[in-house]
Write a protein that binds this DNA or RNA. Sequence first.
DNA 1: GTCTATAAAAGGATAGAC
DNA 2: GTCTATCCTTTTATAGAC
Lengths: 210, 210
Amino acid sequence: MAPPDTRTQLLDAAERLFAERGYRGTSIRAITELAGANLAAVGYHFGSKSDLLAAVARRVIEPINAAQAAGLDRLLARTPDPQVADLVEAFVGPLFDEMPAGDEGGARTSRLIVTILSDPAEEVRNWMGPAEDAVRDRYVAAFGRALPSLAEAELWFRMRGILAVTAVDRVEIYHRPTPGCSSPVAGDEARRWALTFLAAAMSAPPTATR
Amino acid sequence: MAPPDTRTQLLDAAERLFAERGYRGTSIRAITELAGANLAAVGYHFGSKSDLLAAVARRVIEPINAAQAAGLDRLLARTPDPQVADLVEAFVGPLFDEMPAGDEGGARTSRLIVTILSDPAEEVRNWMGPAEDAVRDRYVAAFGRALPSLAEAELWFRMRGILAVTAVDRVEIYHRPTPGCSSPVAGDEARRWALTFLAAAMSAPPTATR
DNA sequence: GTCTATAAAAGGATAGAC
DNA sequence: GTCTATCCTTTTATAGAC
């Protein structure tokens, strides 16, 4: 394979450092140094630091988004009204698939997503495109058909719950090692645990209107 | 009531700004300006910016932690083996109680907690004390008795799920207004939806060992 | 495309007067 | 306890040579 060009090496370095230290905690200097590039390279290839983040985010999110869309297509080709557990798996699965196990993959990507989504700064989230919205809306519609008694507002609440659990789960949010098992759980186990947890949560009967 | 002293006003201003802009996104200058204090006041009263964050975090977390402990005590006084739903409510309830409704309260506190817990920087989380660990451990033990067939590792996974959902739920993680209902849900409704969601998730049968 | 050099600003911390 | 003034570091961004 051809040696990676500067642009790609900058993306790789930025992805790693943004995940480890956050957006604001990462300087252009650290990125270019890790990439073996010159300080001015970020400006030349991307324009600014926030534009670089947008490029990093797009590169991470797009394959996940595409896989979510394909999974839903596959499900709908089989039956027009998929079950809740299958919808959860189609939505959540790509989040794990695109995060290879081990600290050099999944936990880092997960942390990157959390870092991006939870950053208060506007600029950090401005890369979100209509493709993500479209896929999300399709899933909401499918969940709505599988859970006809659930009001739309509560359904949206639960969708956020899915994202919260999958995004946060592998981040060492309890940062000290927990007894029994350490926080970042091995890839496949976390995936199955998350499916159990979320399928049960999504399938809960609607909250009684007070 | 006596006018708030400078120290308190610094805490108030810092709590607000850390929540809105994150730790790194908030300058000492911005804090002292909002507090109507002098630039040097932070250094005098707290020592450094990170010490100020620790003080802010403690002030927010301590009442929540105490309420969680008291809730568990109340539950255990009634029965030695409380039900899952009651444990969830005792654990999650204080997170909502201590966040009065409206943007000036709950959503901001919630965002502060997310900001703190998800910040990659070490210094941001170094305020965690043994009191938090103790309460968490007591809840894990109680959940373990209510769910005897659940392995401890998966139980820890689900505990993280609880925190993820409650902490993230009111943050506008899908930052554009969602159709049907906007993202930050009114206080009491979010509370009841979260209880439904989490009680069902926690009560799920253990994931089959592959 | 890549580099050096530097501009221009912002931030944290602190000394010392009051 | 509070304030002014300032030091020193780090940061992003860019101009211009190669």
